[in-house]
Design a protein around this nucleic acid. Structure first.
Lengths: 246, 246
DNA sequence: AAGTGGTCTAGACCACGTC
DNA sequence: ACGTGGTCTAGACCACTTG
């Protein structure tokens, strides 16, 4: 169902339409990894645009990791793993699904708090502001994998304490029920060892290696923090992947 | 010493010269965060180029996190933290300088090897291909912080075994003396604990938390791996920062 | 020599934000 | 109304790779 035509009356830019058309062919494997993509001049003719427009589509596909280009040779489909390893803002549930594991959760604690200096600082909020705290054991394929404590500024998600947190993804709830798009996060990663509570909760030996992450998540393009979360993952079962760029 | 002029005879693209000129003004604070940058039309006149050329400079500055642009309003200098927390391909030395610590190294092992199946696989090389192996203690402010073992495909850097690895940055040597630009890397991060060798080398207790990273680094835009490195950092002194994007 | 991507020009019209 | 960035055109020359 690919038309290979652009709609010049569409509000969507022409280069965007070309880009999406090519992206779809890459995703449904009509174009396979390392296969050559039509050249800028070919695309220009095919879609009836100028070369700069076709070129812009290819440039964006390159920066998003879908294609690579070599001067004098052509444009080619990139390997899928290169696109997937880009670092995205994903919650635990989505992360697990990417790893082909069934996500789950057991709620340990759920309440509305305020007056925690450290926390208010991380959320750029006043000390009086109400904060929703949720502490869960996170499961992957039925096995406990992490302890996650998240804090949300309550004024952005009033009534959230009534939701079910055992099955559904928190980020999905925020997106669907509160129209909050989390688009940027700052995260730190460090190594620790399991203390008594952690070892009993996650069923690992005391002193075994754990990966701890702390994350502040922001909504939209602004500088407004919405969430602060601290997670402790079993070091023997969890590994983080990042792609670095020059 | 900024000329505010472009050299049309330079081999460097005009948009690149404009970009560097603006970048310098941002870095030396001639242009301050959130201050407005001259518009595309102003830059076009100022440098005597076409608008598309000036525009390309601004687009690259935006994608590198130096500026943000708002339709109808203008282009503005971005906050420094947003540019620094983007994940870059940096070696240990540059990483430490960013953290305001003096980098250093003690060489533990240095030799040319071949015939290691696992390693050849990670470097996409044949088993016979020669590989330069370098194992170092990495110092930060004079204190041992990490053990780093790196492997380079020898055919890309012949003679590298003669270099000094105690002071200088490996990536800098590759860039300056072999014209190898490392622009992309895939990295994994996990938690482990210190074994006997690690604890003695880094002067930590056996069983203390450690952060282990494995990295494959690629040159240029191609799919050619050049380096595979494994590093073990003291968990009590090293923390990794990432910025995630939706 | 032919084809590719990389750069560049000199215009144009549009959508958006400010005044 | 005016200035901003966003898109687009129809050409051009260059550097590079391959036949």
């Amino acid at each position: 169902m690919s038309t290979d035509k652009v709609d010049k009356k569409s509000p969507l830019p022409l280069y965007h339409q070309i880009k999406e058309a090519i992206k779809e062919k890459i995703e449904n494997k009509t174009l396979k990894p390392h296969q050559q993509i039509p050249s800028e001049r070919k695309l220009e003719q095919k879609y009836g645009t100028s070369r700069m427009t076709a070129r812009k589509a290819l440039e964006e596909l390159e920066s998003e990791g879908y294609v690579y280009r070599e001067q004098g040779k052509g444009s080619f489909v990139a390997e899928p793993k290169l696109r997937q390893s880009l670092l995205k803002v994903t919650g635990f549930s989505e992360d697990m699904r990417n790893r082909k594991l069934e996500p789950g959760a057991k709620v340990l604690q759920k309440k509305i708090i305020s007056g925690e200096t450290e926390l208010s600082k991380k959320l750029h909020s006043s000390e009086e502001e109400k904060i929703f705290k949720l502490k869960r054991i996170r499961l992957a394929g039925g096995e406990p994998l992490a302890i996650e404590t998240t804090h949300l500024r309550y004024k952005f998600c009033p009534g959230i304490e009534e939701k079910n947190f055992s099955d559904s993804s928190l980020y999905e709830t925020l997106r669907k029920e509160y129209s909050i798009n989390l688009i940027r996060a700052e995260q730190s990663v460090e190594a620790t060892t399991a203390d008594d509570f952690v070892s009993r909760t996650l069923k690992v030996e005391e002193g075994s290696p754990m990966l701890m992450t702390e994350r502040t998540t922001y909504r939209e393009e602004g500088e407004t923090p919405v969430e602060f979360a601290r997670s402790i993952y079993r070091g023997d079962r969890y590994k983080l992947y990042v792609e670095l760029r020059g």
